[in-house]
Amino acid sequence: MTPKAAIGGNTRPEVDIRRELYRSMLRTRRVEEAIVDRYAEQEMRCPVHICIGQEAPPTGISAHLQKQDHVYSAHRSHGHYLAKGGDMPAMIAEIYGKSDGCADGKGGSQHLIDLDAGFICSAPILASTISVGVGDAWAARRRGEDRVIVIYFGDGSTEEGAFHEALNFAGVNKLPIIFVCENNLFSVHTLLETRQPENQTVRRLGPPNGMESFDGDGNDVEEVWRLAEHAVNKARNGGGPTLLEFHTYRWMEHCGPLDDTHLGYRSAEELENWKARCPVDTYRDRLIEDGSVDRAWLDAEENTLRKEIEAAFTAAKNSPFPDAEELFRHVYPE
């Protein structure tokens, strides 16, 4: 087992990669904010699980992925999709239930897909896609195809039997997979200590299932980037799976666009403390400080993003709704 400190030590990515990491996190943040701002218009008529606060893990991981690599996700999937290069306008149109959506409007926010980008699926049944991703890796090995598989899930999903069963099989067969747990402390409104043994990590489940595992600061994109580099390279070179756990925090309510501290399961103070550790803003400050970016660059990025997102929402609103006949298409392959 490689000690965590040995994973790249304190190596930092090159400046152009730092910028790319920042740009990717910022993009996810701004897209999510745009959904939050417009949700009350009641045109996005499906549940949305907003990932604001959790932008760093998919960003740091995707930086090491290639187009042919495959990503699997669960309900909180927007960031995973965008970081892997999923088509953003198609995602927005999907949330609007429109025919230009990435699933023709049939899936909504909970079923994003972009096969060209290697974002294979997302589904809101806990742990359900984990074993599916394992099967993808297994098929790739059998068919001699060169790809690694990334499977994202929350801390809650690790309580399902299917998670443990899938991990075991991946370990036995040394499959090219990076299992990524985004541990945000909550499953809906239920605290971690109600559901899992005290003072334990999800990471601990790696070795007994035959794989290396690490946990890290899920709000530090460079830490994610370093751990992911090790795990992805290992998977690519036939070294088998890795379990990564990232400690992070969800800012918005579990499902929907609002703040939920009034519910009392977490305090406004706790949320503020995590907001002070914002993965996007802290990284921006760091990059300004070390001279990787300057104000002009940041302003230009914001500008470009604003236009891109505005255009995507306009296109989604203008996209036609699917025809009634679409209801009956695709039940079976033709």
Binding site: G97, G105, A324
Partner: peptide, 16 residues
């Protein structure tokens, strides 16, 4: 219900 999975878009669930 017709023998199709539930569609998400309101434009389709309208007919479902």
């Amino acid at each position: 219900l017709p023998s199709v999975p539930t569609p998400t878009s309101p434009a389709l669930s309208e007919h479902f």
